[in-house]
Design a protein around this nucleic acid. Structure first.
Lengths: 224, 224
DNA sequence: GATTGGATAAGTGGATACAAAAATCCAGAA
DNA sequence: TTCTGGATTTTTGTATCCACTTATCCAATC
């Protein structure tokens, strides 16, 4: 249905697009690790093109903060310090808080039902220990954000999610998240159903800032 | 001192960098208008390089939302609809609110003094009708944000400022801003001086959302 | 007069080539 | 052994070239 991360709907139309998606995927799946050097020639060979489109893809990724580009020094996978992870969570908290605040007045019974169903599926997936939980969780949040009707805001939120995905992945793999998150999610949709925008905002901010310390615990070893 | 917008400190080290700064400047100063088509060849000729670095600069600008890039259709200067301007102001309000909230605990007497001095200079520039007001105003805000100690947050705020600069420019030229803003600025630094983070956040959000309608008034005619 | 089809021009995307910069390697000296 | 300086290799930055897509223009047709 609605994916929180960028749409992979249509196949890439240009080589640059293909390179961009290929690299983004590699970064999100941790195929490339922080500090790794991405060599244009190598990557170009992997996907069967010349260095040029790859270089252009680098520029985009750099603008999104996924890699660092230094003149004559090539492209380095950007890592996040603990402070930076926290900072991104702070930013997320206000952006996603804003999104739910704006979504609250647009809540309708149909959407409420859909959200409850997603919660149920999350619950089941969580109990089964299925990785499906992550996907449903993203759908749950994406659905709410979409309600806000703010495309630019949603783009910014998604961009941040891509940046922290490698760190979230560590967390998802080890932490016992479904239990802790469940109650907050229910409080959230209840506030939304009541049209209590400020409370929903508040819950979302706590929801996000609450996960930051947990994540730091897993992200810290081996991080600069 | 501290400039709110990107640093023009050192001269560009690569042709791509030069193209990027050249284009960004052109966009900020409204030399290129929304809907204009930017032809790589033309621009490359203007600054004495080939199309390649210009194309790469386009990618960065596109990632920042300043231009739109469509396959085989070239590079179009992005315009903002009224809705999009509002949306950006909403995003700004929470981001800059967060920045002052985080700045509050780090406030010290020296900085307070510096802020007051900047307010005075703004006051004088405003009464003289000098465009200096805009620069001081940016310095004032930049100083507070810097206090927050959140580099990524500051970068995001600055990026948004670049996007709306052409619209702010219209507003600065016509509106009677110093009078309306003065009181809010004073309330802001008073809240900061008292370490009242939440109140400072609140004031900042109101400060930003309050200017949005004024700006829309000027931005609307002729905008799609 | 408006519309359509196709020739022509303009522009874009990508590969290759080449110069310049950085990284690497290795021999010789301390 | 460790450090240093320079030659070699690798990699990056940019220009140029070619193929292909899109835009423009003009004439033939309705």
């Amino acid at each position: 249905m609605t994916s929180i991360t960028a749409s992979f709907d249509q196949p890439p139309t240009t080589a640059e697009e293909e390179a961009y998606l290929y690299l983004q995927k590699g970064l999100r799946l941790c195929r490339y690790k922080p500090g790794d050097r991405l060599k244009p020639e190598e990557i170009a060979a992997e996907i069967g093109m010349s260095r040029m489109p790859v270089r252009e893809a680098f520029r985009r990724l750099a603008a999104e903060g996924l890699v660092t580009l230094r003149p004559n020094r090539g492209c380095i996978v950007a890592g996040l310090t603990l402070d930076e992870i926290y900072e991104i969570f702070e930013i997320r908290s206000v952006l996603e808080g804003l999104a739910v605040r704006l979504a609250a007045p647009k809540m309708d019974p149909d959407t409420f039902l859909e959200l409850e169903q997603l919660l149920d599926r999350m619950e089941r997936a969580g109990q089964a220990g299925s990785s499906d939980w992550v996907v449903r969780h993203q759908e749950f949040h994406a659905l709410i954000y979409k309600l806000s009707g703010r495309p630019k805001l949603i783009r910014k939120i998604n961009a941040l999610h891509v940046v922290i995905e490698p760190y979230m992945r560590i967390w998802f793999d080890y932490a016992d998240k479904p239990l802790s998150a469940r109650e907050e999610h229910e409080r959230l949709i209840r506030a939304l159903a009541q049209g209590n925008a400020l409370q929903a905002d508040q819950i979302m901010q706590e929801h996000i800032l609450g996960t930051a310390p947990l994540l730091a615990e897993f992200a810290s070893p081996g991080r600069r």
